[in-house]
Design a binder for these strands. Structure first.
Lengths: 110, 110
DNA sequence: TTATTACATTGCAATATTACGATAAATATA
DNA sequence: TATATTTATCGTAATATTGCAATGTAATAA
């Protein structure tokens, strides 16, 4: 079906999964790394740095924007992207909380 | 195309994305939470706890296993699942390292 | 005004994912 | 042996994702 049964799960579960989904493509990881590497904003020369066509990059940028990880500011003809630090931290904390809830479990069976 | 151009990206980038992909479905988050809640192994009564058909659960379990997040031990007719703590920590650290690399960037443009 | 430049959007083809019925496989039980 | 139980696999339908060429849009430059 390809259709996730969202209604079967809690809001939190859908949130965590949604956040992970935004990170679930190497191109998006690469884009985020380029933006981070730039230390400030990167004025959209991502196409020349990542080996994908311009519409593809644009599509990934939109997904990162929808997830709240980045924001874009129009500067004349070009667009400046940077990390949305506030959302980034929220996302990081949510993911971390989930990933850290595995303490030392006694491996008594497996 | 639906075909990720894996070869365009570094091993690390593909790793991070692959890990995120394993977490990118609420059913898999729910499964992991059930296993964690059980504190030890959960003997495959996941189908009764999660509102999805048995083959669907089985499929998600396989993906979690492929990602290294869980392991399963056969116990008679049933299978016991538990968190693969070693791999879990490796994955967590990789994701954390990525998510933590955004320090206080001066918001000088956006 | 007419390019030009930088991105976004549209539309489409190829592939991937999700979900489940049917069925297989493996073990336990009667 | 026959049957029940539990999980995995196969096959398939529905939907989602990825990638890109073509095109649209908005600001700037000539």
């Amino acid at each position: 079906m390809g259709l996730t049964k969202t209604e079967n799960f809690t809001v939190k579960q859908n949130q965590i999964a949604g956040m992970a989904k935004a990170l679930a493509h190497p191109a998006r990881i690469a884009i985020l790394q380029e933006i981070i590497k730039a230390k400030s904003c990167i004025c959209g020369d991502l196409v020349s740095r990542i080996n994908l066509a311009q519409p593809t990059i644009s599509q990934h940028l939109r997904e990162l924007k929808n997830a709240g990880l980045i924001k874009g500011d129009i500067e004349g003809t070009s667009v400046c992207y940077c990390i949305d630090e506030h959302h980034w931290k929220l996302l990081r904390d949510t993911l971390n909380t989930f990933l850290n809830q595995v303490p030392e479990i006694k491996d008594n069976c497996c």
